[in-house]
Amino acid sequence: MTIMIDLKNVSYRYPVSDDFVLKNISFSIEKGKFSAIVGNNGSGKTTLCNTIRGFVPHFYKGDLDGEVIIDQTKMADYQLGQLGEKVGYVFQNPFIQVSGVKDNVFEEVAYGLENLGVPVEEIKIRVEEVLKLVKIEHLRDKNPFELSGGQRQRVALASIIVMDPEILVIDEPTSQLDPIGTEQIFDIIRLMKERGKTIILVEHKMDLIAEYADDLLVMHEGELVMQGPVREVFADPEFEKYQIQYPHVTEIALQLQKLGTALSFIPIRDEELAKALNRTGVAIHD
């Protein structure tokens, strides 16, 4: 397998700060994998995203130690513009991603491609396709600043997907979205995975991570404390000590276990609970 993202002993501190926000982080992510970064707020997740997309150190200065290799090339050897094509980044806050120079959604989504010098005809085709994919065709003529938080979050995602980067770094894409909208976003991310994209996602909604992601990276106070397949990490007793949300079903299962109920395995999806309890789903009514 090709390694797409490779970090070796990476530490970083922002300018004029005394403390390192990333501490000696090493991991490799294979091409086509969907990895979720979890951890409580302030644990370094967004800074880690900024490192993968090259904003650390190309844009934010500060001290960066160790090595960041993206698709076999060292970070230091990229220009920030080249990285923009390689790594798509969807902002945590959709209110700040919107460019402010375009007065409708169609042009906003087309903006990145224009900057890459893509021919106009091709831009039109690609934008149409993405508007449909992200289900925002009806917003095409609206001013991006008149959209609701959830709508802007979709426009932000569309603006990045349209550029077709190999790596997608997505920072809490659903924080402003309702549950159905959230699932739609996850379905789009899954589609990107099926197209062979390498995906890094920061998210607090563990039920969705359990359902969609391959691997989990757990951040705690700037350190990468756990990593591995989603199921293994959630089932590892060590996870509990970082005070991070579990998938709801896992939380229930662990409580049952503490109360002496035998489980055949630790469930991470709602539909697994019956099996874990060795129930066949036979109705028991009073």
Binding site: D178, P179, I180, E183, D207, P247, H248, V249, E251, I252, Q255, D270, E271, L273, A274, R279, G281, V282, A283, I284, H285, D286
Partner: peptide, 23 residues
Amino acid sequence: MLKPPAVAQMAKLLDFPSGILSK
């Protein structure tokens, strides 16, 4: 188009009587 809380969905999957909402 609301999605009920996870507990309600689990209770439904386990075929429990309705009304369960908390863990």
